[in-house]
Amino acid sequence: MADLLGVAVLGAGHMGADHVRRLDRVVSGARVAAVADPDAERARDSVAGIDGVPVHTDVEAALDAPGVDAVLIASPGPAHEEALLAAFARGLPVLCEKPMTPDSAGALRVMAAEARLGRRLVQIGFMRRYDAEYEDLKALLDSGRLGRPLMLHCTHRNVSSPPGFTSEMLINSSVSHEIDAARWLLGQELTAVTVLRPAPSSGAPSGLLDPQFVLFETAGGALVDVEVFVNCGFGYQVRCEAVCERGSARIGEERAMTVTAGGGARAEVPQDYLVRFADAYDREVQSWVDAVRRGTVTGPSAWDGYAAAAVAEAGVLSLETGARTRVDLAPRPDLYA
């Protein structure tokens, strides 16, 4: 066990428990060294069947547990900044689920703390960069075969929203994935955002502005539109079509099983992001573990986490005002050049 990367998992909810399972059963070269969650019973449940994993209700106790070499943060967004700074203080590399922080001010503080270390310690969990279809689309766009990208058309649908989900969270939680994917696919920063609000669906909880239509402008003159609909009722769907000067490419078509019976055919639709992006999560965590074992940190950086937070803030302001809103990014530190 000594040659395995010991990972402390912070947060034992839906995402954190899945990462515990992944580290224990799927990823090679790593083991779960500690788990922390304010709910001790939930933390214990997440490691049921895994011998010798201490559970804690305190983050710092988990970080200081014997054998901890790295940290995976899967706690709610408001807890991320404190956990990141605590990991930095111990020199521990981190895979942090999105959002890096709930706001751009916190993201700037995290970037400044990492820059003072003079080296990258954190990778942000934008897992779509590890999805095979997104990787293929990125390679195609980078090749230039279709000419300059002009537009991205994106769809992001969930079966239903969890309790407490707000209209703002459609932007800063759901669409944050499209924000990062668009920046990465196009290699351009997003410079302005406009959020349009159709009449809410009858399936949305009272007061929730769902669906929304989000339009991003980029530094290179491309446009990105996102339909986000978190109470569609039928399944989890993520699609993206790139329209370029000499052609287009589309990803996210259904790949699930089709059942034929009783005189008809029914295509199954994934009900959860952990199903649709299971392979992407596996590849993301494996890539992170491999890099850390080599002594490096790769993948989406704190700058990417900051940019996503800043664009999302502009999007929330546009949601509130109905106006086109500029995105003003701070200067990019040399560490992330």
Rank of each mutant, 00 (worst) to 15 (best):
G106R: 09
E284T: 15
E81I: 07
A89K: 13
D210T: 15
V71C: 08
Q237K: 11
E81S: 09
H177P: 01
P200C: 14
G91D: 00
M127S: 08
A79H: 12
V55T: 12
L117W: 11
A280I: 00
G233N: 10
G91S: 06
C240F: 01
A337H: 15
Q212I: 12
D136E: 14
L152E: 00
A265Q: 12
R183I: 08
A323H: 12
D131W: 11
G203L: 00
L335C: 08
R90D: 00
Y236L: 02
V327T: 01
R119C: 08
D51M: 07
F216D: 06
P333T: 13
A43G: 15
R294F: 01
A83L: 02
Q271C: 06
V327Y: 05
D18S: 13
A314I: 10
A2N: 14
W184M: 11
D37S: 11
D45S: 13
R324M: 06
S248A: 15
P102A: 07
R326N: 12
F165T: 10
A112G: 15
H80A: 10
G252H: 08
G235E: 01
F165A: 03
A34V: 09
D304I: 05
D39I: 13
G220W: 04
R255C: 01
S75A: 15
L117N: 11
A337D: 15
G221I: 10
R326Y: 08
D272G: 09
L121A: 09
A330M: 03
P149K: 10
